[in-house]
Nucleic acid binder design. Structure first.
Length: 272
DNA sequence: AATGGGACCTGCGCGC
DNA sequence: TGCGCGCAGGTCCCAT
């Protein structure tokens, strides 16, 4: 499940491999993932453009193109961007939805089992509603900002960390991991955190995300890097996916609860 | 403002 | 072996 570290990893991989490449041909195998414009216009407009810049905002990838437009890619749950050496006779892999044939013989495959992923071609990516609704990037955040943002927030801290309009880029997995390391109960009301706890959460947001980026993200389920290789951060997970297993710190059983329809993992002793 | 639910999808693992 | 079910979680949307 791609969150900020996974998307950032893909962004950096893309910068090394496809920056400056020309989009020669676009093959659409499932038009459902193209949100705008219509799939035929999407395909026709993209062909011939050069990839000038590659950015990330929250969990969204942004490819700026030579005519000033931008291709945005949201991987949602199961989306993958994979560089293929070659494809089978059908021209696609199992879940290829859109395949970009680039100059230099590079093939970029947008693969997405569950079809939640979204591609858009827009004139001005700053005007995308989703972008405008995003909160600050975690790495741009000062502690003063963060403290102000928590002020009078009654919401539980864990769902709050996942709210993209609050902070951009944190999803279900990293929210649990951050709170474990900060020793904060995920069910606590955000405004009830002590100064020390707020500071701990703030610090762990940056620490966990940057370490995860350093290790190429977390490959559980579908996420892979551009090369098809897995991200390495799973070995640092302390709570995510570990219900009923012993806490690495105190040996208590890790618990799983549901918050806002999502699984939350935590240690009932370390995070009292 | 906060919270809960459903919707969008598919494949997997479970129990029977 | 096979069927049906619940579950995974990013985001939007609606209801309370």
């Amino acid at each position: 499940m791609p969150e900020l570290p996974e998307v950032e990893t893909i962004k950096r991989d893309l910068q090394k491999i496809i920056l400056g490449a020309k989009i020669k041909k676009v093959c659409v195998y499932n038009p459902m993932v193209i949100r705008e414009p219509s799939p035929p216009v999407f395909k026709k407009s993209l062909e011939g453009l050069v990839i000038k810049n590659i950015l990330r905002r929250g969990k969204l990838l942004i490819l700026e193109l030579s005519n000033g437009s931008a291709l945005t890619i949201h991987l949602k749950m199961t989306g993958q961007l994979v560089l293929r050496q070659k494809l089978s006779n059908s021209g696609k892999a199992k879940n290829s939805r859109v395949v970009f044939h680039l100059s230099g013989g590079k093939i970029l495959d947008f693969n997405d089992q569950r079809l939640f992923g979204e591609l858009r071609l827009v004139d001005d990516w700053g005007k995308i509603k989703f972008i405008q609704s995003l909160g600050p990037e975690p790495f741009d955040l000062t502690y003063g900002d963060f403290k102000d943002m928590l002020f009078k927030k009654k919401t539980k801290i864990k769902p709050l960390l996942m709210e993209q309009s609050f902070i951009a880029g944190i999803g279900n997995l990293y929210a649990s991991e951050i709170l474990f390391r900060a020793k904060v109960d995920p069910a606590r009301s955000a405004q009830s955190l002590s100064e020390g706890e707020k500071k701990a959460v703030y610090k762990e947001i940056k620490k966990v995300l940057s370490k995860a980026i350093k290790h190429g993200g977390s490959s559980i389920d579908d996420y892979v890097r551009l090369s098809g290789k897995k991200g390495d951060y799973v070995k640092f997970h302390r709570v995510y996916g570990r219900q009923d297993q012993p806490c690495f710190v105190c040996n208590s059983k890790i618990k799983k609860i549901t918050q806002g329809g999502r699984g939350t993992y935590f240690c009932p002793k370390c995070q009292m």
